[in-house]
Design a protein around this nucleic acid. Structure first.
Lengths: 217, 217, 217, 217
DNA sequence: TATGAATGAGATTTCATTCAT
DNA sequence: GATGAATGAAATCTCATTCAT
């Protein structure tokens, strides 16, 4: 289950939209890069124009405000996170896919860590936005939250029935998984030097498997 | 081991410095609050003056730039984080304090989660500062990093000798602990509604204990 | 040898630079006028904007700081002073041009006094800049000094060979000439009412000729 | 006729005024130094307080405004220039003092160049003030002008009667003398390295004597 | 008298946004 | 559509001056 980067998705989306000119594309690219490098507030529209190699007015041709640019940058990221969260876990599939708890974590984390790694830049922008903006935050939560809870819930129900996972509240398990993910993201973004994705994945999968495997009794 | 809030420390620091007037204190307080609420970049010096009930010029009397204000706000926060990381773990103490692995996690997390809870606002300001500023980041790391590694390292050596903890690399264990802490901080700051600190602490301690207890064989 | 005013040169320079818009031109003109009238420090960018009939932001569009505006104003003035100092005094020309010492002073002073008269405003701005700023001063000296010394030196050598001028050290002669020029400039700028350029020129030429003609013996 | 520096006069004046405290004296000293070093506009009252080693409020104790400080600094300079210009040239004295034209120039210039040398700092402050302030300028002129013209006029009348000086208009002769003085001041203030006062005086006296000695015929 | 914190008016500067070409 | 000059509102910052202690 190789994840394509948001960037690919991003460019696909843009390519699909015939109304987006190459210049607009350059503007969104430059915006993304600069927002990730310096933060939204420290990026001026003039910076964007310069980096994109266009005139300042052009930046405003399609997007009426600087905020609209951020939204245009962030939208595909969100749109890309969502469906991957909403992956269809039909019951038949579950037994096949996740013969063991380790398989489950392996599937989730090899996928998600790769996703985070490939899209650290984009996620940094999203993160900045939701960090100080309660509205963006709740908008995102409203969209992503239920999916996570429902989809993962389905899996958990199955895993619990098969006694492959401990019978602890779902929110606590999800929480732990998200913590590991966020921790990884933090290390990545903060530029920790030795972030070896394979080592990290293997360790996280191993640790979580141990944590959430029901005690033999 | 009740932790005093950074705010108390903050006020102590200011009270100790006879050169800081009530108005300057009000300015630092207002700055801290506003930086936490709106972020540094969305807080104008005029905002600070209004909130502190002083003239705008007064904001600049002691601190020559807006950045200097942030530094004045952040310094005591950092100064407060550091010593709590540097808690003395002498060997004698270790056996007494941490008879079991659970005791260890309990000690660490009941303390740290309370600290994070009490000082979420202050930590948010620090966090914002280091998020896009590699310099601040490495400055903080240089100060905090070695303490964490050394202190925790001492404990781990002891725990490993007594075979209370698995013989995995220290960095991976620390990483996991930090992930849980960061995850908790994230939920708190993002305003998750049902963040029950006792429930969280109990769960984290329990989960980590299970994760890092050596398998009986 | 009619001298064109710095203002003409100034406008030529601007006209030649297609990237300078009429508004930018108005800004530089207004700046020059105001700097000369009130001094640099007593001229606010708001003054400049008002006089130039533009918005205050426009003042900063091309020149990033108020100091950069001064530089843009002063540069063409300096550029204009320099070449006129570097007038080519080839030997052949010398004998023709300066048959007598009076011819020499007449040539120099009718030219220089006219220049100072026409460009008093501009020179005042340069003067203000170098008065308290050792850096600007030495920068100007490095550029202008050698030219004056070399060019005038050539002439002096010739005049001395032909025994048309006393054999005193060049620096003292130059000094005297400059004193007369500076004295004239001071009277002009200080607004002395009866500064009649012809009378002044005639007098200065006459006086200097007498001063520096070798005594018959 | 040895001239005491303005500084001495300055301090005498202050010492004589029992109402001026040592702190006020320090303030005037510091102001003078800073105005001469950096110019009036680039010297803040805070700079003055720091340099004088007093509190900022103290600066305002006696002088109500920054401009009043400048006036207090400048007044003794003016007061010192004026009487020296108004030296009584009674006819009897003239014949004694100035047996030759050279004696006259020697007296004037050895005195005035020494004065300029000793008080370059103070004169720089006066100069800055009158350069851009027409009011200060005309106030000074009204005070100094007539004295110069009358006193020097008396001398000239005498010298002309004795045919020691050419019968040229007084204003042109005065002008030339002032030009030499201003030229010297300029070199001094601009920091020309090799300003040797004896050499300069000797040269100026010699040159002017030659210039203004009536031609033998 | 001396202090120095406080003031507020005004200066410089930035930058998202508009608009004529 | 694209350009980039122009805008003006708002931000940061300075500093002469006041005033309570």
């Amino acid at each position: 289950m190789t994840e394509k980067g948001i960037r690919d998705y991003f460019e696909q989306t843009m390519a699909a939209d015939a109304t987006i000119t190459p210049k607009q594309r350059a503007i969104l690219q430059a915006s993304l890069d600069l927002f990730a490098e310096q933060g939204f507030d420290h990026t001026s529209t003039s910076d964007i124009a310069t980096r994109a190699g266009v005139a300042e007015g052009t930046v405003y041709r399609r997007y009426k405000t600087k905020n609209a640019i951020r939204e245009a940058v962030v939208a595909p990221i969100i749109d890309n996170i969502v469906p991957s969260m909403a992956a269809d876990f039909s019951e038949a599939e579950l037994h096949q896919s996740f013969a063991t708890l380790e398989d489950f974590f392996q599937a989730i984390f090899s996928d998600r860590l790769a996703f985070v790694t490939d899209n650290a830049k984009e996620l940094k922008v999203v993160f900045e936005m939701i960090f100080f903006n309660a509205d963006s935050r709740s908008a995102l939560m409203k969209r992503v939250g239920p999916l996570v809870v429902n989809q993962i819930g389905t899996v958990f129900t199955d895993l619990k029935q098969r006694q492959l996972i401990v019978d602890w509240p779902n929110d606590l398990i999800i929480q732990t998984m998200l913590s590991m993910l966020v921790g990884y993201f933090a290390r990545l973004v903060m530029g920790f030097p030795d972030t070896d994705i394979t080592r990290e994945t293997d360790f996280i999968v191993m640790a979580l498997t141990k944590t959430f495997t029901p005690s033999a009794d």
